[in-house]
Simulated scan of single mutants.
Amino acid sequence: MSVSQSETIEARRSVPDTMTGMRLDRVAAELFGEFSRERLKGWINDGALTVDGEPRRPRAKMVGGMQLQLAATIEAREEWQPQPIGLDIVFEDDAVLVVNKPAGLVVHPAAGNPDGTLLNALIHHDEHLATLPRAGIVHRLDKDTSGLMVVARTLAAHTALVEQLQARSVHREYDAVVTGAMIAGGTVDAPIGRHPVDRKRQAVVVSGGKPAVTHYRVQERFHAHTLVRCQLETGRTHQIRVHLQHQRFPLVGDPLYGGRLKLPMGGSEALKTLLREFPRQALHARRLAFTHPDDGRAMSFGAELPDDMVGLLDTLRDDQRSRHGEVSS
């Protein structure tokens, strides 16, 4: 099945002062992050993306206050195939979908994951989504992160939600289980960019990184682990995983940033076994709030922890009780 519809995109973004001196193609990739760099570069070359009403080359230098205007037509992507993959739909109306994504589900087709993704499930649920940028997906979760995502169902809703994300007015809250006994919460304000050596990873970088801010607070302490609640101001790739690792509190089960497995001294065998076998980073998007793009209502949604994280916390609590029993005896 393929979709032959098309959609006209019209959007305007103002270049912030902080991007003065940057190339147009880089600024466009930042301000119109819902589109691929390749597609944006094509629109720049075709004159569909202009600067102050005039076409410019991709390498043209930008100045704060310039206006980028996009007017382009997107055809439905025939290579995106609808697939009957189950969706846990938390909310749905004519403008938006809120879904609770399970761990293990890739959000968008890419090299190594050409199908079987959330996007394939979405266009099976609503074929019109194939005409929208990234099928209405305005933000992502890593494959092995579970939890809430909002998806636009119309172009107007997509534009409004992207603008809310850029204005940092979308509230996103996560629960994470980290290795290490964290004493207090805090804020990490550290730019994130591609790791200089390992291109599969992100890292805190001094030069060339994108601004990234994560607030975190302690929810529950264990002997050698902590349940942490994180709130995002920005939404960089792997942001929570990178920032908490930067604080020396990597997520339990994180294959990229977790480092060498550390088993707690004196821990129960049940806990040690679970830590060895935990299949993913212990991260769940628990709360999502935004302004409804059509009528301005304040929308807020929550998703309970999935079974694997509940089991991890139960085992940590059992281990903690056992330790207290040993101390008091």
Rank of each mutant, 00 (worst) to 15 (best):
A289E: 11
W80Y: 10
L271V: 02
H124G: 10
F32H: 01
E78Y: 10
G185N: 05
G258R: 00
R140V: 00
I183N: 13
L97S: 05
Q281C: 04
V63F: 12
F222Y: 14
L275V: 04
S4Q: 14
I123P: 09
P58W: 13
T20I: 05
R323N: 07
G253I: 03
A167N: 14
A111S: 12
E75L: 12
P279N: 01
Q83L: 13
R201M: 01
I44R: 05
V106F: 00
H284Q: 02
E173W: 06
R276Y: 01
R168I: 07
E233L: 13
L122A: 03
R39V: 13
S4A: 13
H108E: 06
P55G: 04
L40Q: 10
V177H: 03
T291M: 12
G208L: 11
G21F: 12
R140M: 00
I9R: 04
T117E: 07
E54F: 08
A212L: 11
E173Q: 15
N120P: 12
V205T: 05
H125C: 05
A203K: 05
Q239A: 02
R248Q: 15
V197F: 08
Q245W: 01
R168V: 06
S6L: 12
Y216L: 05
S329P: 09
T179M: 15
L316F: 00
L232H: 02
F278G: 01
V218K: 07
S169C: 10
Y174W: 04
R276V: 09
A28K: 10
G53S: 06
R37M: 03
I9E: 04
D314E: 15
A167R: 15
M22R: 14
R241G: 00
A298C: 10
H215D: 14
L251H: 00
M299F: 09
L24P: 09
R12V: 15
S322Q: 15
A103I: 10
G185W: 05
G116M: 02
L141H: 05
I85W: 02
F290L: 14
S169E: 15
R37A: 09
E173P: 01
H243F: 01
F249H: 15
V51A: 09
T18Y: 10
S300E: 15
A176K: 01
R194N: 03
D318L: 13
L244P: 12
G86L: 13
L161P: 08
G104H: 06
L148M: 04
L165I: 06
D46N: 14
T145E: 03
P191H: 11
P16L: 09
Y216K: 10
A176T: 07
V107M: 06
V228H: 05
E10N: 12
L24T: 06
R168N: 14
E75S: 14
H292G: 08
G253H: 00
